[in-house]
């Protein structure tokens, strides 16, 4: 079986800037970010929607970039961890919520999304909203603390 590569041009906003990229229309956004643009803050933990490491904001909503085709992104706005308010990453770092760190960018984006929807989430709400992000290192205790520290912070 040999299939030849199809490529098309796509325009979208990435972290506030217009980008134009040639990519196979069947590529996932994750593949485009990592393999073509080499913007590697967004991680690939499973490519199946199970781990959340690849979380990005699509028009401000958290989605899996591994389950989003570049064709679904045309004309939209994508925000990756690199452009998320640094105070979220900082809270994770300060509270010791980062060990190997491979899951962390996904958590940071998911947290930024949570805080955009809810200023003062309860413990149960934080768990509900982060349930799709897996971390194998921390046991989540410090992740919860990091997010709690950001709650109610309108700064």
């Amino acid at each position: 079986m040999q299939y030849s590569r199809v490529e098309k041009e796509f325009f979208f906003r990435l972290n506030g800037e217009e980008v134009r990229v040639r990519a196979p229309p069947g590529y996932t956004l994750l593949e485009v970010l990592r393999h073509i643009l080499h913007l590697t803050g967004t991680k690939d933990g499973c490519s199946s929607g199970d781990c959340g490491a690849c979380t990005v904001l699509l028009d401000g909503r958290a989605v899996h970039s591994c389950l989003t085709l570049i064709s679904q992104v045309e004309g939209r706005e994508v925000t990756t961890v690199e452009a998320v308010d640094e105070k979220v990453a900082d809270a994770y770092a300060r509270h010791g919520a980062v060990q190997c760190g491979y899951c962390t960018p996904g958590f940071v984006v998911a947290t930024a999304y949570l805080l955009s929807k809810m200023h003062n989430p309860s413990d149960a709400e934080i768990r509900e909203w982060l349930r799709g992000n897996l971390c194998r290192c921390t046991g989540y205790v410090k992740i919860l603390k990091a997010v709690e520290s950001l709650a109610g912070d309108d700064g």
Partner: peptide, 19 residues
């Protein structure tokens, strides 16, 4: 002491082998 590698990792700047 806050880990020195933490913030870079959290911001997605650390390069792992797969990056």
């Amino acid at each position: 002491v806050v880990r020195r590698d933490a913030l870079e990792k959290a911001r997605g700047l650390t390069k792992y082998a797969s990056d």
